[in-house]
Design a protein around this nucleic acid. Structure first.
Lengths: 218, 218
DNA sequence: GAATTAATAAAACGAACGTTCAATTAATTC
DNA sequence: GAATTAATTGAACGTTCGTTTTATTAATTC
């Protein structure tokens, strides 16, 4: 046999991408064989090489694509906040909401850095640094304006990144809390870490709008 | 050739354990071949099977051994603290100091859970839960005594675990801060997260002793 | 409807994988 | 010093790996 009826390069490509994310996230890059990936897509192993030159480029494409999307999404969403405090809360909400529904990407990003070739790894590491620096810039800004009271900005940045990324390890959609509820609780914890008081907000047309101070029951 | 002069089962076994930790931490369990491991030990691949029945048991032994040591060490060290506040500070200091000098174990523990057989994984997951629950118990205790002011104990526990474990990702011994300095900064951040004020301490004979309130420059 | 291009299958490549087995020698026991 | 046990080698097992090559058919173009 050869070309199958109804075959379509675009559909096959995205079927490969989707299946690869599932497989890599579940069993790991090294443990994922090309034969198993082909099985999942419903195609012969050789068909893969029409879309990627090799296995490594597939992994890189997956990780690079995710980082590009994260950076673009935050750049778009972060613009609507103005003060450091607003930006800080927005960042935590964004990070948790965005990543909770992209858990395969998060897992791959955390676990498969070492499976990248040195050149590819350098590119991804650079993109990750750029993203994490956008939080650091917010903390710097908030210290300048005295909205925050932080002892060590570099350490606090890392602590917050680790804290909010940790959500993706345990969160399940059938959790006792919704994603938004969890995000709010992490905003509260983040505010404690940076020594700030919360400006409570409600959602209005998808944008976070201050509604004045709110009494917390702690 | 056969048995080599000076060969010793005990020494070979620990050479295997050490080389395996380095290799698994660096390239991952799946990517570590038995031939490469044998090379690192300076032995033929077949020699390995005198010490472990298979590759999987080696991984399990490494991970199980680490968890046993963590639990034993914290049980011994945690006893010297009495109030929830003291225990909390002691836990963070212990966690960071203990794991910073066992980075291979930490990496393996975080990355290779999925490489364990289901039965082995269940055992390790249970041990990890036991360790993390010892922090949770401290938070529970501190809420009862009103030393802490926490909104959500389960979430705060996870947040703190993620935060302090994150240190192992970026810490290098040539960092601008020593391990002890970093640990103290994370104690400070931990105290903010649980809504407590610090009781500053100095080391006296290896034990943490309160020295009264301390002004922090935030 | 013929020519061309796109998408796949089928089969095979050599290399590497985890593991087993038999043989061999060093160390220990008696 | 003979017998036994401990530790290892060298070679091989069958399997699976990522990838390449060639042939074949569907879809598209003209």
């Amino acid at each position: 046999m050869a070309r199958t009826t109804g075959s379509d390069g675009g559909r096959t490509r995205s079927a490969i991408d989707i299946a690869a994310k599932h497989l890599i996230a579940r069993v790991g890059y090294e443990a994922m064989s090309m034969r198993r990936l082909a099985d999942e897509v419903g195609v012969q192993p050789a068909a893969f090489y029409r879309y990627y030159p090799n296995k490594q480029e597939l992994l890189f494409s997956v990780m690079r694509g995710h980082m590009d999307r994260v950076l673009a999404a935050w750049e778009a969403e972060g613009r609507s906040a103005h003060t450091a405090l607003e930006k800080f809360c927005a960042f935590i909400r964004f990070h948790i909401r965005f990543h909770v529904e992209r858990r395969d990407d998060v897992h791959i990003g955390n676990m498969e850095l070492r499976s990248l070739s040195p050149e590819n790894r350098a590119i991804i590491v650079e993109l990750r640094a750029r993203y994490e620096n956008s939080l650091r810039d917010i903390l710097d800004d908030g210290m300048d304006t005295r909205e925050f009271a932080i002892d060590d900005i570099a350490l606090t940045t890392r602590a917050i990144i680790a804290m909010i990324t940790g959500v993706m390890v345990w969160f399940r959609t059938d959790d006792r809390l919704s994603v938004d509820e969890i995000a709010e609780k992490y905003v509260e914890m983040g505010l404690r870490l940076v020594g700030a008081k919360k400006i409570a907000t409600t959602k209005t047309g998808g944008r976070n709008v201050p509604v004045g101070p709110k009494i917390r029951s702690l």
